[in-house]
Design a protein around this nucleic acid. Structure first.
Lengths: 217, 217
DNA sequence: ACCTGAACACCGTTCAAGT
DNA sequence: ACCTGAACACCGTTCAAGT
């Protein structure tokens, strides 16, 4: 498409389009060249090779992740809201997560959110190594969940699904549980609840020693 | 190596060796054929194509994941111990996790552990949908963490590392936190603590309503 | 400084032909 | 029922040659 004096920017733009449409696997140097109307080898002059092209693409997409504003009254609520916002941002860029994952750049992607989290954990009254641990636990949890969710979306029908297993099995003992596990997972709800549990568990731990208090019943 | 009457089993064995040594990316049909001393095309007769070869490999490896025995006195401890055991099993087979992830078979891989978790969550006094939620939250958390850790191991040196950021920045306000975030993550410790927090958060939630009680300070 | 085509060393897969 | 080589349609990358 684009004519006259190929730019590195143009290459990145075209590459971004290909990746957005069909994922990183669909980005071949030859297709990209065809899209740009140049010889394959011209691309190499501008971006080096496929690997560093993808690197540059990741760098770029990470850069325009939106800023995150915490919401809520209590620190626990505000930390949980940061986690939810971050998940939303990442889920809006499904291929980014895959590429960042492949490249091992998760840490980098997370720096802006980390700053925000530190502020909120401070507001919760934590300092030093204990505060750092909470920040990292939340961070790891969010990325982990996003990765798992992405994975599940790609393969909607699992071979011997949970359904089949839980249809008969424990139905006698706890039919409601069997029914619940046979239903597809509501990932939004699960994320919200587990983040809330994680955060309250992390913040509570300090109050009453490491081993958190009584368990239900 | 192997001579006379190529078997499907032999193909899988040789494929497993290649994958174990250098990851799924290193498994090419041509290398595999060379290893087996046959024509590339013979392999197709036995396993169909590369994709279903990898599927079969995953199936096989998932099948010999060890059984998990919970340890500890309280349900919270026992649930956490299942999470840790599962993480250990998965980390012992790094390529399996990648392949399962690519194939979207996470659910399947998790079925045996799910049974064990259900028993422990029952022991904690939960039933029905609430019990199912705890099981799934733990399950998702473990897989998520294993994926994140695998990702981090592949790229040990992150470009603008946390180190650089936290070296100067907030050092004034909370130097201990800055130091902690500048240190490399102790993933074993982080996993143990966050699982404990998550589980206690999940089990507590029932006792005192959804919004878990006071946060520290 | 930028672009080109030819060539190299790889892929996965199909297919007609052998035994 | 099993194995084969030839061939097809792809890859990423290098390199000498052009302007």
């Amino acid at each position: 498409m684009a004519r006259s004096a190929l730019t590195r920017e143009q290459v990145l733009d075209a590459a971004a389009v290909l990746v957005r449409q069909h994922g990183p696997g669909a980005l071949t140097m030859r297709k990209l060249a065809a899209e740009l109307g140049t010889a394959v080898t011209s691309i190499y002059w501008h971006v080096g090779n496929r690997e560093s092209l993808l690197d540059a693409l990741v760098e770029r997409t990470v850069a325009d992740l939106g800023a995150i504003r915490p919401r809520g009254a209590t620190p626990a609520d505000r930390i949980a809201s940061v986690a939810r916002a971050l998940r939303r941002e990442l889920r809006a860029r499904p291929h980014l997560v895959a590429m960042v994952h492949e490249r091992g750049l998760t840490e980098r992607m997370f720096l802006p959110a980390q700053r925000v989290l530190v502020r909120e954990v401070h507001a919760a009254g934590l300092r030093g190594a204990r505060a750092a641990e909470v920040v990292r636990a939340v961070q790891f949890h969010v990325v982990g969940q996003v990765l798992v969710e992405r994975n599940r979306e790609r393969a909607p029908a699992q071979s011997p699904a949970e359904q089949d297993l839980w249809a008969g099995e424990a139905a006698g003992e706890d039919p409601a549980l069997a029914r619940a596990l046979a239903r597809p997972v509501d990932t939004d709800r699960l994320f919200t609840r587990s983040v809330r549990a994680l955060v309250s568990g992390l913040l509570d731990a300090g109050d009453r020693g490491v081993r958190a208090g009584p368990y239900s019943q």
